[in-house]
Amino acid sequence: MTFAQTPMGRTGGMAARIGRLAGHVPVATVYVVGILLIAWPFMQALTGALGPDPVRTLEQKLGLSALQVLVVMLALTPLRRFAWINLLRFRRALGLTALMIVSAHLAVWLFLDVRDPARIWNDILRRPWITVGMAAFLMMLPLAATSSGAAIRRLGAAAWRRLHMLTYVLVPLAAVHFVMVRKGWQIEPLIYLAFIVLLLTLRLEQLLPRRRNKKRSRP
């Protein structure tokens, strides 16, 4: 049972009920929601519902959805630790879904917005905001490639875990990308960034003792 693993071993109450409810939700739901998060705004863009600048609006909507999925993913561990709600079985699906939406975001930028290969390369190199976003995207690739159980066995749990710490770099980078894309210091992206930093801070405690317990690799 999922909630048997909660730190306090608590089974009653709200948290358990949410956990039990979530237990009935197939993981595949996450992918379905992800596909809808891409398909729906795309349909809206086609029908004119996204307004007069559909390329830009679609690009932004997809980017924001991807960031939101990443935030939810990052919230799972603190949720289990502090609210005793265990939704960890959705984590891989959330990560892969985020990558799927980011890919759509990138595709809109490449094929509907900029289009010009020379300019794309130039933008990636010269525009810090795009460099940052692209870095976050590239960091997602090895994580997706090693998301299977087989990959964990192949790499070994420790190496796998170390590799997947990239998450703690790429998610804040995605938020920084969002902050930079706006004119001026706008409140909305800063809230995302602050929340992500908070979620990471909640992990520090967990990360540090583990590091201390680890065998020293150097003599």
Binding site: D53, V55, R56, D113, R119, N122, D123, R127, P128, W129, M180, V181
Partner: peptide, 8 residues
């Protein structure tokens, strides 16, 4: 932060 070469 972005190119001004083109416009939508």
């Amino acid at each position: 932060r972005w190119s001004q070469a083109t416009e939508r």
